[in-house]
Amino acid sequence: MATTVCTWNINSVRLREPIVLKLLQEQQPDVLCLQECKALVELIPTQNFADLGYKYMVARGQKGYNGVAILSRIPMTDAGHRQFVGKKDARHCAATLENGMTIHNFYVPAGGDIPDVEKNDKFDHKLKFLNEMRDWFHDDSPEKSVLVGDLNIAPREDDVWNHKQLLKIVSHTPIECEHLAQVQDSANWVDITRQDIPDGNLYSWWSYRARDWDAADKGRRLDHVWATPDISNAAHSSRVYRDARGWEKPSDHAPVFATFDL
């Protein structure tokens, strides 16, 4: 059975409910993973999602910040969550679909503006978060699993609009890319997006600050779909749905899709 998974940093699920509904109606993923929901779980507008067939939800929330949710039209069970760096941030949740595939939905800290752990607590938090992800997956050895989310790092040179200019910019610094690579290596996660689209510039985020984001095209690939090796060959049809970045009152992120034949 083909299962299409989509990940999207929505930047407030209540504020942008209309474009979530638009995506669900037009693209009809089986599973939609949202980050930065910025809402308590009980305030997520579930009824309108359910009316479109997305009757199942696993979510973790907090007031005004962070928050992750997995919406599905396939039955699934809550597979728990993990808190990182001693904080009670809602930055991870997991669900297991009826086909046995477990989806981990992550919102990795952005890390602030200064890539220096001594001068910037947020950057220190980000690196420690990634270290804990690495250690967890190394110890847990997940199988038949997919990891998606806003990982807030664009690891490859062609994941950013200008590699040299961004080497000292948070999200593309060598130390962040190294930490993300260690997370990926911890369970031999396969970058499904780049497995399907191995060459060329590819972005999923464009700043709100750009007067014309589309023309300037100064993007970064911050949103990712990974899979464990046992199911990576079942993945196909990866794409970034760039059009959504141009919708009314958009998120600054675009949805990223992949399909798994399991």
Rank of each mutant, 00 (worst) to 15 (best):
A50F: 05
P255H: 11
A95H: 03
K119M: 13
D139I: 04
V31T: 09
F260W: 11
D217A: 15
K88F: 02
M57Q: 12
I103D: 02
L130I: 06
L24T: 05
H81Q: 14
I231A: 03
G112F: 06
I197Q: 13
D243M: 08
D89W: 05
F123S: 03
N131H: 12
L52E: 06
P198K: 14
D185S: 14
D78V: 09
C37D: 07
N48P: 00
R239S: 14
L180S: 01
K55R: 15
L71F: 04
E36L: 08
I192Q: 02
G80S: 08
A254P: 02
G246I: 10
W226Y: 15
N66I: 04
E143W: 03
V240I: 15
V5I: 15
W161M: 06
D243W: 06
R242C: 01
N201R: 15
H236K: 14
T77N: 12
R209N: 12
G86Y: 10
D214Y: 11
K144N: 15
Q83G: 00
F84V: 08
S251E: 09
P29Q: 08
M76H: 10
A215E: 13
G61W: 01
G246Y: 09
M76G: 02
I10C: 08
Y65P: 00
A154T: 04
V240N: 01
R156S: 03
Y203I: 06
A2W: 03
Q25I: 02
R156T: 00
A227Q: 04
W189H: 01
E176H: 07
A210W: 09
S141G: 02
Y208Q: 05
A59G: 09
L151F: 13
P45D: 07
P198L: 14
E143L: 12
G100W: 13
Q28P: 00
L52I: 02
E42M: 08
L40S: 01
N162Q: 10
R156I: 00
P174L: 11
R242E: 11
P45E: 11
E118K: 15
T96Y: 04
T46Y: 11
P250A: 10
T46W: 07
R211M: 08
H172C: 13
N9F: 10
G100V: 08
F49G: 01
C177W: 02
D199N: 14
T102P: 07
W213S: 10
D89F: 06
G246M: 13
A50Q: 13
L180Y: 07
N188Q: 14
R221T: 02
N99L: 07
D243L: 12
D159H: 06
G61A: 11
A59F: 08
L40E: 13
W226A: 04
N188R: 11
F257K: 06
R220G: 00
R245E: 08
K122P: 01
I114Y: 05
R221A: 02
T228I: 03
